[in-house]
């Protein structure tokens, strides 16, 4: 029951993260969703992912978002969504409904009996599935290289053209289309 309440709370947080007008609030709502997800995972019994979710998902990622938002500025543009809301709603409800029907029609989630000895998570993660981890290292390497390529030059560039990273401070003209005051919230 408790987990059900948490689930509802997580979804509420997610909805708020999308609806929030300010990006910073979005990021905070997302952090909230993350923290609650961590709690949910804890209740499920997956303690370690809960901890990681709390530290990485709620902590690190939020910091990253806030960092990015502070650099890019709180650009409060708002406008009609390009895709009609009704169509979007229809599609998403359709997708979720189909999946839900599918899961409901199915004879419950069968629980495959595991005949092998239960191992610990650290054993699974570090030994049994070490390959996953190794590939992740490659992935992180690729990501770091890419990020370096995307934003890593700034320090060098700064020497010559300090103007280039001024975006952080400047607020570009806000694109506010007429008569969409009530649409400020997405």
């Amino acid at each position: 029951m408790f987990s059900g309440l948490i689930a509802i709370a997580i979804i509420m947080c997610a909805v708020q993260a999308i609806r929030a007008a300010r990006l910073l609030s979005s990021a905070v709502w997302l952090a909230g969703a993350s923290a609650l997800t961590a709690l949910w995972l804890y209740i499920l019994g997956a303690q370690q992912p809960a901890v990681i979710e709390l530290s990485v998902g709620a902590g690190l990622v939020t910091v990253l978002f806030i960092f990015a938002i502070s650099i890019s500025g709180e650009e409060a543009f708002t406008a009609y969504p390009r895709v009609p809301r009704k169509l979007a709603l229809l599609l998403v409800v359709g997708a979720v409904a189909l999946l839900a029907v599918d899961l409901a029609v199915a004879s419950g989630m069968p629980r495959a009996v595991d005949e092998r000895a239960v191992s610990t998570l650290s054993d699974t993660f570090w030994n049994a599935r070490a390959l996953d981890m190794l590939v992740q290292m490659v992935l992180i390497f690729a990501g770091v290289l890419g990020v370096l390529n995307l934003i890593g030059h700034e320090e060098i560039k700064e020497v010559e053209t300090p103007g280039e990273i001024q975006i952080a401070q400047t607020h570009l003209p806000q694109v506010v289309e007429p008569e969409n005051e009530e649409l400020l919230r997405v």
């Binding site: 995972l41 499920l44 019994g45 997956a46 370690q48 992912p49 990681i52 979710e53 990485v56 998902g57 690190l60 990622v61 989630m109 629980r111 495959a112 009996v113 595991d114 239960v118 191992s119 610990t120 998570l121 054993d123 699974t124 993660f125 049994a128 599935r129 996953d132 981890m133 992740q136 992935l139 992180i140 990501g143």
Partner: peptide, 22 residues
């Protein structure tokens, strides 16, 4: 958890968190 392999699922979840953070 559903398939009785909580630690497997948890391990996958961990990996997903790491990968998607990147």
């Amino acid at each position: 958890a559903a398939s009785g392999k909580l630690e497997l699922g948890a391990s996958l979840a961990l990996s997903v968190i790491v990968v998607d953070t990147v």
